[in-house]
């Protein structure tokens, strides 16, 4: 199985290239929800968001921001969306991490929305506790220490690799590997 985006990155297929450097690429999406949709992705094959190094994430979004402005000004759209589908349940269709930039206009026929639900205090508190516990376990540097804010700002400069527990990550990657 050849990864579509890897093929684009290696120039094995043609693309409408907008931006390229050593680490990332941005192309006009060839089967867009709205014409003008741009896809930004790392050249290296990272299946999911969490595996992409911080440095590359920072660059991807800075470029995405500029592309968003370019979209807004050159296509005269009224707004833009930035969307990441991380995981099959979230609508991920390619097993290669990417972000989508979509130009929006009134009545363009695209529905990106949800019904806000009334969550009970219990539900919120449960979610809150689970997130807090897990975040401290996964990233004690970032989530565990409230006093060390100044250090955090400096640490930003260093690219952080996430060491995923292989047992735990399998279920998500497994579902991705099942993608056509």
């Amino acid at each position: 199985m050849v990864c579509e985006l890897c093929a684009v990155a290696k120039k094995e297929v043609e693309s409408e290239l907008l931006y390229e450097d050593n680490e990332i690429m941005a192309v006009v999406h060839l089967k867009p929800a709205i014409p003008g949709q741009i896809i930004v992705f790392p050249k290296h094959h990272y299946p999911i968001f969490e595996q992409v190094p911080d440095k590359i994430i920072a660059k991807m979004f800075k470029i995405a921001n500029k592309l968003g402005i370019a979209l807004f000004e050159s296509l005269n759209c009224h707004g833009t969306n930035l969307l990441i589908n991380n995981g099959v349940a979230a609508g991920q269709t390619m097993a290669h991490f990417s972000l989508n930039l979509i130009p929006r206009k009134e009545k363009d026929g695209l529905k990106l929305q949800w019904e806000p639900k009334k969550a009970s205090e219990e539900e919120l508190q449960t979610a809150f506790l689970m997130i807090n516990e897990k975040s401290k376990e996964l990233h004690p540097d970032l989530f565990g220490r409230e006093e060390k804010n100044e250090e955090l700002v400096e640490e930003r400069g260093r690219p952080k690799e996430i060491k995923l527990d292989k047992k735990k990550e399998n279920y998500l990657l497994k579902s991705l590997k099942r993608l056509p």
Binding site: L83, V88, A89, G91, Q92, S175
Partner: peptide
């Protein structure tokens, strides 16, 4: 099963 990151 997944996370959406969404900006409007």
């Amino acid at each position: 099963g997944g996370i959406n990151l969404f900006v409007a």
